[in-house]
């Protein structure tokens, strides 16, 4: 064993003049972390394939049944309808990525190594959230636009396609990527709180998927109002080009979802700060 540890002459005690790690350093580290595990690639690929694939499939479903639809039902078909449904099925997978980036650290013990390197926990969590949010935003936008264009190609066969120039469509499609990024962040918060992968994924699934379905069964006026504010119903309002009854206005819906995300992340930060690692 050589002693060559690039001996810093007279290493005795930490020198207060030594460089401080900056937030950019921590960001860079989190970026390297997220791109150097295979699970990131696979979850993003799975999420993308499901959303894009389902968008196309549902576009086919619409075109093949369009002739049998009543005029009322036809009026409800928007160019973004296929991707709305596809998002409902695929969004949980982006949530899984948000869960994994943190629960994988807990279950492997990497969390302790990470917090030894970055002991200021809000800094660590903020860098993780920014990188995750950034990655999912970019991929999510690509997925959203691809879903839109591919489904339009199918819808065009029945002349029911739209374009980004139609009222509210660009906002709906661009908003889809933002929605996915928020989903990942909310899942990150849930992952921090729950710490176990399976448990956190179940919570994400219930919050995003099950609650949305339960909302559909709530009775009366009161039920309809509550249903509008359920997380996935509020969030997916951004995918609706023109305001619809039973759905919050697009921006308001996304804002409600962002608020939920902020609350979950604030709670996550609070427990993360106070808990032993």
């Amino acid at each position: 064993m050589s002693t060559a540890t690039t001996a810093t002459a007279g290493t005795a005690e930490p020198d207060p003049g030594r460089p401080r790690a900056s937030f950019a350093d921590v960001l860079r580290s989190e970026w390297t972390k997220i791109i150097t595990v295979p699970s990131t690639f696979w979850t993003l690929l799975a999420g993308s394939l499901v959303v894009i694939g389902f968008s196309v499939l549902w576009a086919f479903a619409f075109t093949s049944t369009y002739d049998q639809l009543s005029p009322d039902a036809r009026a409800d078909v928007a160019p973004t309808s296929p991707m709305q449904i596809a998002f409902y099925f695929g969004m949980v997978i982006f949530g899984v990525l948000g869960v994994l980036v943190v629960t994988a650290e807990y279950t492997t013990g990497m969390m302790r190594t990470s917090l030894t390197a970055v002991p200021r926990r809000p800094v660590y969590l903020a860098a993780k959230a920014l990188v995750l949010g950034g990655v999912v935003l970019v991929v999510g936008e690509a997925v959203s636009f691809l879903s839109f264009f591919l489904s339009q190609a199918v819808l065009a066969t029945k002349d029911i396609s739209g374009s980004l120039g139609d009222p509210g469509v660009l906002r709906a499609v661009a908003g889809g990527g933002v929605y996915l990024a928020l989903i990942a962040l909310m899942a990150l918060g849930i992952g921090v709180i729950v710490r176990h992968t399976a448990g956190a994924v179940v919570v994400v699934f219930i919050v995003l998927f099950v609650l949305g379905i339960v909302g559909g069964f709530l009775p009366g006026q009161w039920g309809e109002t509550v249903a509008k504010y359920l997380p996935s119903n509020a969030g997916s309002a951004i995918l609706v080009p023109v305001e619809q009854s039973g759905v919050l206005p697009p921006w308001q819906g996304l804002a409600v979802f962002a608020l939920y995300t902020a609350v979950v992340c604030a709670a996550a930060l609070a427990v993360f700060q106070s808990r032993d690692a």
């Binding site: 972390k33 150097t36 699970s39 994988a104 492997t108 013990g109 969390m111 302790r112």
Partner: peptide, 11 residues
């Protein structure tokens, strides 16, 4: 602290 405290999928 713990030699296994690394992500197994990362090099």
């Amino acid at each position: 602290l713990d030699a296994k405290a690394v992500h197994p999928g990362r090099s």
